[in-house]
Structure formats: C-alpha cells, structure tokens
C-alpha cells in the first residue's frame, strides 16, 4: 500500500499535475490509488461506468473500438505520462471506447466520484483539473483529425 504522502509525491512529480499547490495535491491524493494491469487486461469497456481516470506510469494502453467483422481496432495507444479517460468528468459518465493493456501497465487511478464531489465544493480544484484536461482533449482531437487525413496514403 502506498501512503498518502507517497501518493502526494507521485502526483507532484507528474507533469500533468505540475503547478498544483499542496492543498489540491492533498485532495487529489485522497482520491488516488495505485493500479497494475497485465498485458491483455481490459482497463475499461465501452459503455461501462466511467468512475475514474488513469495516469500511466509505465507501459502501453490501446484505446480500441469493436468493429463488426474486423474485431477490435486500435484507435491510438497511450504511454508513460499520458492520461487515460475523461468520460468521468461529464455526464452520463460512460466510457466511449475500450482500453486494453498492451504490456504490463502501472498507473495511478483517480476516483471520479470522489473527485466530482471535491470539485463541487472546491471550484478552484475543478478549474485546475479542467485546465489540464482541455489541452489533452485538444491534442487528441488534433491527432485524430490528422490520422483521418490518411497523410501517407498513395496520391489519388
């Protein structure tokens, strides 16, 4: 088990939380726990209750969607220092895709219910989290748009 102080240090050292003060780090640490997934484990499934998000510390996660007759199609992979999941932030709190550990994955998960309660009473914490999630969403959207362009396809 990781102590609250250790979790504080882990979060403090992570680029996603850079710039947060001790008060907010404490609040986050209170909702955080360590997770481990073996290669092949599903971290969550499409449609499931999105009750947490993950900060990857080690390993590779595939974000997938099941396509009829094609099986699971990998949309993108996430790696060390990436965040996984934002469906916990906004209703209806359902996962949009599957997430599968490609290799051994070590991560910190943050409980979404716990965080949402804290964000209700501490709007500043909500602001700081939103300010960190929006750029991640923007980056993923940009990457998805570029992927959609199929840049390396043979010229038509």
């Amino acid at each position: 088990m990781v102590s609250l102080q250790d979790m504080d240090d882990l979060l403090n050292a992570h680029p996603f939380f850079a710039g947060l003060g001790p008060k907010h780090l404490d609040e986050l640490a209170g909702c955080a726990r360590n997770e481990r997934f073996d290669a092949g484990d599903y971290i969550f499934h499409e449609g499931g209750m999105a009750d947490r998000f993950y900060i990857l510390r080690h390993g590779q996660v595939a974000v997938e969607v099941k396509v009829p007759h094609k099986g699971s199609v990998v949309l993108e992979t996430l790696h060390e220092d990436d965040t996984l999941g934002w469906s916990w932030l906004v209703p209806p709190h359902h996962w949009t895709f599957d997430a599968r550990a490609v290799s051994l994955v070590r991560a910190i998960s943050l409980d979404g219910v716990c965080l949402r309660e804290k964000m209700e009473t501490d709007h500043e914490l909500g602001f700081h989290l939103m300010a960190r999630f929006v750029p991640v969403m923007g980056e993923r959207l940009r990457a998805a748009r570029l992927q959609m362009l199929d840049l390396y396809a043979p010229p038509a």
Binding site: Q60, V73, V74, L75, E76, T77, D81, A143, L146, Q147
Partner: peptide, 23 residues
C-alpha cells in the same frame, strides 16, 4: 515507430508521429 492504423499483430504505438515527440 508509430502507425496510423494498426493491422495484424502490431503491438507498437498507434497514432500520429507528433505524439512520439512528447516521449
């Protein structure tokens, strides 16, 4: 090495090459 579309037994990164820069 990253690919835009994973096929077959590929178990490496999937996504834009820009994402590799962040690593």
């Amino acid at each position: 090495v990253t690919v835009d579309r994973a096929t077959g037994r590929w178990s490496g990164p999937v996504g834009m090459v820009t994402k590799l820069i962040a690593r």
